[in-house]
Design a binder for these strands. Structure first.
Lengths: 121, 121
DNA sequence: CGGTATCCGCCGGGATACTG
DNA sequence: CAGTATCCCGGCGGATACCG
């Protein structure tokens, strides 16, 4: 169904691209935000798994792969034994830090406001 | 298993309460961020459904109910026919606006950087 | 150490029909 | 207009086992 593009018409590339939704798509995923948070400093895989409580290797890997695909983090492999892999933020990832800081700050205050009946594990 | 709480010990209420994760829990949900975004202004139900492209009544309702439960939005029912319901941000919700603005701004720049091969519907 | 590979359960999200 | 009430499905997340 080929059709010509008229002048002044919105290019297909811009259709349905809402910036907020774009952001939503990137951080959607149960562990991504907390992962990015800890990646404010460069971390190794096992380190991340210890820092993020309750995540398994498999899931951690998949979340990291998606963040990598979305150009939020960089994966650096050291060719040595035992293996060593370091994860760090890309420029896009670093530019997201302020938002993470805000979310942390907001969460602190928000959690303040409803500090009753907090469940422990 | 009653046990005494020693001085200086971390109260149970604070255990496992990570501010960033707390925030994550509130905004987790496919449509919540974009909903909050549009609620910078008070909106009616049908209005929201038009503003959020692709969401059905049922899902929109459930997302709104969760945001209400988390004290992010307020639901005001006008007792009249035809029914009229207005949604607006609570104080907690309003305090989240800066983050939404940042996310929008970030999404704009982020989308810029990879504007190729954007899929249309 | 830092992963795959595989299987599985669950529930969040979607579609449809009905209602005050 | 602004919702319920069901049913259903896909896929994300979790558990386990194995590997270079």
């Amino acid at each position: 169904m080929a059709r010509t593009t008229f002048e002044g018409e919105v290019p297909e590339e811009q259709i349905d691209v809402c910036p907020v939704t774009e952001t939503q798509n990137v951080i959607a995923g149960k562990w991504k935000i907390i992962i990015l948070w800890h990646l404010k400093e460069t971390r190794r895989f096992g380190e991340l798994q210890r820092l993020v409580p309750g995540v398994s290797k498999g899931i951690l890997t998949s979340q990291l792969r998606e963040l990598e695909r979305d150009q939020m983090i960089h994966r650096k492999v050291y060719q040595e034994v035992p293996p060593k892999v370091e994860y760090s933020l890309t420029d896009a990832g670093k530019s997201f830090i302020p938002i993470l800081e805000n979310m942390g700050e907001w969460g602190r205050k928000y959690a303040m406001g409803k500090q009753k009946t907090k469940k422990t594990i």
